[in-house]
Design a protein around this nucleic acid. Structure first.
Length: 554
RNA sequence: AGCGAGGUGGAGCAGUUUGGAGUGCUCGUCGGGCUCAUAACCCGAAGGUCGUAAGUUCGAGUCUUACCCUCGCUACCA
């Protein structure tokens, strides 16, 4: 059976409209999937909204809705955003789905049967007024160390010391301001120490785990894992299917990654496929994209859950990204700081523009910053000047020239053969960088090809050739080869800016199949007549004035 | 505080796995060319004691140690 790939992007939390930083794993995974499709690989691309948790109950209550109603509305908003950005998911599921509830219970029961679940008594804060158990971050009070008021239940912002919420002076419920009481309750724990050896072996033996994805879990294991609490005193979520836990649900992070399997199952059920071909067939590779904050969950807790039963495939590769910050600080909805995905939909720039800019500043090796000036520079000086201008100058001349007839590879002269050779090298590097998770470099390789195109165009001066009736044939040759270069750049850029490149490919090579185009890792040449009747710029340049406005607005 | 990641011309990044002359890329700057194209394109040049200090080595951006700075995690935010 041919190798399959199941690719996921970290499940966005239903309560937070993603900002551009949260959007990075979605963009990277989408590009990665599209590049794999160019290679003709069998890929399934899955994501879902993560809908459990205390915040969902609180947000729904604030809006006077049931959790179900609230999540449905929010899920639709997320879907609109993903569609707008051309995030080409095969399926966008929900962790509140029936399939996720069933699979979560199934995996839990397997873990429990094998003795991987233990029970412990824990001390919790309870707000009698809200009738709700309070997570640490929902409790506020005076820091016992530095006496600063307004310290949260987990850490004091002023002295940055950790706080045991019971030690807070004058603790208050963040929701109603009343004083919470201390309660003891029994909870379930995933007995992580029992997985230490298996996890260590799994990570050490998997050569695809690099950097943080390897060192962080190995460091945690070396220090000694602790059991992780997986139950919560909430109503909304996956019910715990054992006696004595009827009033509790699973911790979001227990059922969230199972959402990857559930979404796969929902997709497969609708398309006459079997989800086990993805999750239990050893020929399938599971690949997860996420932000760096998510790495402990995906390298320790999630594989442990899957080790409940030998049948599940473990993640074979993890691509984590650093953070994209806003003007050297954090994005923050509550402080109204930064650009959020729903803002982007209201601005005048199309999704390709945003995708290109974000692709060119992907935080792959270290944190990077969103900067408006840089947004303008990258779009004007790289996307437009390099690629869009190349396309526009050929199209403009071709329109004046008339019908272009294709030639065959034997007609190529030495410099043209050299260009094809260089394109081939760029394709090889592009694919290699994609596999290594360096999409910013892959983009660079794509743009190298349009630089080759601009050079070729400059040297061969088709604008002179078309004026000379004796040089019609030569003009045809140069234009045809220029278009062939343009086809190759457009293919390589397609995963990054899918909309505009598709238009160009349809214009210059109608019927050309984008999927599989790089299967042989070879450049493509155009083999049909090309007639251009209209020429217009691909993107509008961004003006200084616009940037000034945006800087004021955000 | 502990653990993890990062610090490389004016800006942004590769390069560190396996040590071999500061090597490379994009943007910006400066000089020249071109006039098909959205002041776009092409050619050339300048610009760096690789966070700091010490060490190993014939040789360190790369290995070791200490320190400084940025970010993440530290187990009930998700």
């Amino acid at each position: 059976m041919a190798k399959k790939y199941l690719i996921t992007s970290a499940l966005p939390y239903i309560n937070n409209i993603p900002h551009l930083g949260n959007f990075i794993p979605l963009l990277r995974s989408d590009i990665h999937v599209r590049i794999k499709k160019l290679q003709g690989k069998d890929v399934l691309y899955i994501c879902a909204t993560d809908e459990s948790g205390t915040r969902t109950e609180i947000e729904a209550e604030k809006k006077h809705m049931t959790e179900e109603q609230y999540c449905k509305i929010m899920h639709k908003k997320f879907k609109e955003i993903l569609d707008w950005f051309s995030i080409d998911l095969d399926y966008f599921g929900r962790t509140s789905s029936k399939s996720n509830h069933e699979l979560t219970k199934e995996i839990f029961m397997d873990l429990n049967k094998q003795g991987y679940i233990c029970e412990k008594e824990v001390t919790l804060l309870y707000c009698p007024d809200c009738k709700r158990y309070l997570p640490d971050s929902y409790v506020e009070g005076t820091c016992p160390h530095c006496k600063t008021p307004g310290a949260k239940g987990d850490q004091c912002d002023a002295c940055s010391k950790f706080i045991n919420p019971e030690e807070l002076i004058e603790p208050k419920c963040k929701l109603c301001g009343q004083k919470p009481t201390v309660k003891k309750d029994k909870h379930l724990f995933l007995d992580l120490p029992k997985f230490s050896n298996k996890l260590k072996k799994y990570i050490e033996e998997n050569k695809n785990f690099h950097g943080i994805e390897r060192n962080l879990p190995l460091a945690w294991i070396k220090e000694g894992l602790e059991p992780r609490c997986i139950s919560r005193n909430l109503k909304w979520g996956v019910k715990i299917p054992i006696k004595g836990y009827e009033d509790k649900v699973f911790y979001v992070w227990f059922d969230a990654p199972i959402g990857y399997i559930a979404a796969t199952k929902d997709y497969c059920d609708k398309n006459n496929l079997n989800y086990k071909d993805y999750w239990q067939n050893k020929d399938t590779q599971i690949i997860h994209f996420m932000g760096k904050d998510n790495v402990p969950f995906h390298t320790i807790i999630w594989p442990s859950e899957l080790m409940s039963n030998k049948k599940w495939n473990l993640p074979s590769r993890i691509y984590s990204n650093e953070f994209l910050n806003y003007l050297s600080g954090k994005f923050s909805k509550s402080n109204n700081r930064g650009v959020f995905c729903d803002d982007v939909l209201k601005l005048k720039y199309n999704s390709d523009t945003w995708r290109f800019y974000l692709s060119s500043v992907l935080p792959e090796g270290k944190d990077s910053d969103f900067e408006w000036q840089e947004f303008m520079d990258k779009i004007n000086n790289e996307l437009i000047a390099n690629y869009a201008n190349f396309a526009y100058r050929i199209i403009s001349i071709a329109k004046r020239f008339g019908e272009i007839t294709p030639l065959t590879e034997e007609k190529l002269n030495k410099s043209e053969k050299d260009i094809l050779k260089k394109i081939k090298e760029n394709i090889a590097n592009y694919l290699n960088e994609n596999t290594r998770g360096n999409l910013k470099e892959a983009l660079r390789n794509a743009l190298n090809v349009s630089s080759l195109g601009n050079q070729y165009f400059q040297e061969n001066k088709p604008w002179e050739l078309i004026k000379d009736d004796n040089k019609k044939e030569e003009a045809n040759h140069v234009l045809w080869f220029s278009f062939s270069i343009l086809l190759n750049v457009s293919l390589l850029l397609h995963p990054f800016i899918p909309t505009k490149t598709k238009e160009i490919i349809n214009l210059i090579a109608p019927g050309f199949s984008i999927n599989n185009a790089l299967k042989d890792k070879k450049p493509s040449i155009i083999n049909k007549n090309i007639t251009i009747t209209e020429a217009k710029p691909l993107f509008a340049k961004i003006e200084e004035e616009e940037i000034k406005e945006l800087k004021k607005k955000f």
